Simulated scan of single mutants.
Amino acid sequence: MTDEPRLSAREMLDHLDTTLARRTRVRAVTALLAGLAGAVFVTSLWGSEPGPLPGRTHLSFALFTVFCLAWACYGGWLLTRRVPLFATEQVVAAWIALAASVVTTGIAAVAAVRSGAGLGFALAVGGLFVAVALVLAVRAHRRRAALLRRRRELTRRERS
């Protein structure tokens, strides 16, 4: 046994640095700026299109704008958090990526069919993005579950 004082789980959590790690801050700022820049770009492109656009084109522009704003909101949310996140930020990012990948694949597939370009390439590329996003979502959920399980274990030991 060592003579070092033992910290309870709550004390360990309280001692965690409340500021974000540099890597997390960089990721948050990148998401925020890229999301805002993407939203500005897509909406300016949308607004500058000449003539009346079909409804599905308006829907596509609107969805891309929403995805960009979701990334911007994610970056802002991450920057304002001052508590241990227990990998919640990774779960949120993975779900945004998965939703964006699925919807973008659907839009690309519809556009490919309508243009006669063939569905295979759109589904192959989109499927790859969806598969990667799905793997990241599963990993994020597992990591978060492991961290929460560990916190519960530490809390139980503290009560004992």
Rank of each mutant, 00 (worst) to 15 (best):
A37V: 11
P84N: 01
L148R: 04
G75L: 11
M12E: 12
V102Q: 01
R56Y: 14
A70V: 05
V103N: 04
R156L: 14
T30N: 13
R151S: 08
L134R: 09
L36Y: 07
A97R: 05
A137Y: 00
L16T: 11
R142F: 07
Q90S: 12
A100Q: 14
L79H: 00
L16Q: 13
V125D: 07
R81S: 04
E158D: 15
R139S: 09
E89F: 01
L128C: 09
L119K: 00
A93P: 05
A131Y: 06
G55A: 09
T30I: 12
S48K: 06
T80F: 12
L128F: 14
R150G: 11
A131M: 05
G118V: 02
G51T: 01
A122T: 05
V42P: 02
T57K: 11
F129H: 14
A111R: 15
T30G: 09
A137K: 02
E4S: 12
A93V: 09
A122F: 03
F67M: 00
T155H: 13
V26Y: 08
F129R: 12
A39R: 07
L53Q: 13
E4Q: 11
G120R: 12
G106S: 04
F121M: 10
A109V: 04
R151V: 15
V83Y: 12
A21I: 11
